[in-house]
Each structure stands twice: as C-alpha cells, then as structure tokens.
C-alpha cells in the first residue's frame, strides 16, 4: 500500500530525512520509534503533505499513485489520515459540523453523494460509543478547551469517522494517562482491518503494549537504522536509544 524509497526531506537549511526506505502492506501495523529529533514526526507530516518541508530526493508510492504529487486534501480524500500530536483548535466550529464537512468533502472528491443526516447521526453514534465519548462533545468547538486526552480521543474519532486506508498516528500516546491510553488503543485496534494500514509513531514502547505492531522500525538521524518485530520495541525499552547511535554507524558501515 505504501512504498517509501530513499526519501530525503529538509526544512529550511536542515536535512531531516536522509534516505528513508519503508514498505507497509495493507492490513499491517508498523511502529516507528526513535529518539527526539530523529525525524519521526517529520516523516508523518511529509506523508500528510505539510508544506514546510522540501522533498529533495526519493519517492513515495501510495496505492499505486505518486503521493508526493498530491495536494494535502487530495491525499486525505484518497484515504491518508494523520492523527496529530498537537491537534489544532478551531473556534466557533462545532465538532459535528466539522466532521460532516470533512466527510462530505471527501465524498465530493470521490463523486459520492453527500451523507444523509440520518446516516451521519448513526455513524457518529456508533463511533462515539466505540471510543467511550460523550455526544455533548460534538457540539463543542473543535478541540477548543479540550483536555490533552480529549484531543487525542477526538483525533481517533475523526479517524474512525473518515475510515482511512492509511492512518498515521503521530505520538498519539503523549500526554495520555493510562486509562485514556487504553481507550484510545482499543479504538485504534477496532479499526485494524485487512484493508487498512496503520503507522504508529511513538517515542515510548508503552503504547505498543496495547497496539501490538507487526513491525517495528527505529529511526535515528533521519534514517531507519533497525527494523524488526515487536520484540525490538522491548529491546529499546531495555537499553534505551543511546546504543543505537553507535548501531546506526554499524548499519551505515555494513
């Protein structure tokens, strides 16, 4: 579903991604771990299409199409979803209105009819229950005055409503207490499906106890320096990231 080849990206004068290679198949969950500043979030935003980054080399194929050639909203309509580390507040726009507008924009792109009020209400009810969210949150402005946990849960709600093919979760665990973490993870797990690929970006192994990945990649210095199964996450937890810095050189040299 997603094929990243030798991806280089820079922000102003700093090269952040220095040759990422990654292949994610439908139905898989991949975890991308790494120390602060390793380029994890940059990778997530480059996939979503944030315009602050310049792609200097490499290619990204998504569902057989050139992802880098698409506008941000085109990617969204094609099924790419990013759950933000810092969800943005939109004053005066209710969550419900926003969700409906998003669904309808995507439908429009796909030449599908607008969602009926009835279908929308039913879908929203189902997803709210899945995430244990109160429907009163739907009348509040998007993320405004939400606690950290509420914001993250709201991201997963949006993901559940938009039903993406490729979901990228950027540090969804940061700022969550253990109960919220469990609920969010259950929500994500409920969205695992053979048609959907999920990339979980995280600093800590903790999240991966709840969302068990098929593969774990370690990003350091803008490159993937190790890949393995879920045991790699445990090894990192044990030894910390520092040992990887030397490891990175080993990989590069080898």
């Amino acid at each position: 579903m997603l094929e990243i080849k030798n991806l280089h990206a820079r922000s102003e004068d700093t090269e952040i991604l220095r040759g990422i290679n990654l292949s994610v198949a439908a139905g898989e969950v991949h975890a991308i771990m790494g120390p602060n500043g390793s380029g994890k979030s940059t990778l997530a935003h480059v996939l979503a299409g944030r315009e602050d980054y310049e792609i200097t080399e490499g290619e990204v194929t998504y569902d057989g199409k050139d992802l880098l050639d698409m506008e941000i909203e085109e990617r969204a309509a094609e099924g790419v979803f990013l759950a933000y580390q810092y969800p943005v507040e939109i004053s005066g726009v209710s969550n419900k209105y926003f969700l409906k507008a998003a669904i309808n924009s995507i439908h429009k792109y796909r030449d599908e009819p607008v969602i009926s009020r009835k279908d929308f209400v039913a879908l929203l009810k189902e997803k709210l229950e899945l995430l244990g969210m109160d429907k009163s949150m739907m009348d509040r402005s998007v993320n405004e005055g939400f606690s950290g946990g509420e914001k993250k849960r709201n991201e997963i709600l949006q993901m559940a409503m938009l039903e993406p093919k490729l979901a990228v979760l950027d540090e969804t665990d940061s700022g969550l207490d253990i109960d919220a973490l469990k609920i969010v993870s259950e929500g994500v797990n409920a969205l695992r499906s053979p048609e959907r690929a999920i990339i979980v970006v995280t600093h800590y192994q903790r999240l991966l106890e709840y969302i068990v990945p098929d593969k774990v990649h370690v990003l350091a210095g803008g490159k993937i320096v190790r890949s393995g199964d879920k045991s790699l996450a445990l090894e990192l937890e044990d030894k910390g990231y520092s040992f990887l810095q030397s490891g990175a050189e080993t990989v590069a040299a080898g």
Partner: peptide, 11 residues
C-alpha cells in the same frame, strides 16, 4: 489550522 482542515479533506 488550514493544514489541519485540509488534512481532513477540505479545500
């Protein structure tokens, strides 16, 4: 804000 809304599919 614009980036966020576009990521959700809005022009």
């Amino acid at each position: 804000q614009i980036y966020y809304l576009r990521q959700r599919g809005l022009s």
